[in-house]
């Protein structure tokens, strides 16, 4: 199958990948069942979305009897890093510090969340110094 170069997911594809990351391995029917009830999607459309994800190299499929079972080839963490790098490059002039500063300045962040961020940075700095 031809591999396309698009490294990012559309909104509906991200929804599918999120379900697949939660489920580990899933058939089209499994993913459809895991989607929210408000998302009314035909089986054929769901199968097409998974086939595109396969063309984008985000998932691989294996045939089990008459159905295909899909598995993510890229972890959620890896995709989060890729998306953040892209965001940093495109919106924050390739300066991750600006991205973090914008996040920290955001009034919606609770004290708890800020403590968590501080702990993560401290941990990373500790690891680098040791």
């Amino acid at each position: 199958m031809t591999q396309k170069k698009n490294q990012f997911l559309t909104e509906v594809e991200l929804e599918f990948m999120s379900r697949l990351w939660d489920l580990g391995e899933a058939t089209v029917r499994d993913v459809l069942d895991a989607l929210s009830a408000s998302r009314k999607l035909a089986y054929t459309s769901a199968a097409t979305i998974l086939r595109i994800l396969e063309q984008k190299n985000f998932v691989v499929s294996t045939r089990q009897g008459k159905t295909f079972v899909y598995r993510a080839t890229l972890s959620k963490d890896a995709y989060q890093s890729r998306s953040l790098r892209n965001l940093s490059e495109k919106l924050f002039d390739n300066a991750p510090a600006t991205l973090v500063a914008r996040l920290v300045d955001d009034n919606h962040l609770s004290q708890e969340a800020l403590d968590e961020i501080r702990a993560l940075i401290d941990k990373r700095l500790g690891n680098d110094n040791s």
Binding site: T10, V12, E13, R39, L41, I52
Partner: peptide, 11 residues
């Protein structure tokens, strides 16, 4: 557009 797959009627 692939986003149209999310709306069967429009598709």
């Amino acid at each position: 557009p692939s986003s149209m797959l999310a709306n069967d009627a429009d598709l």
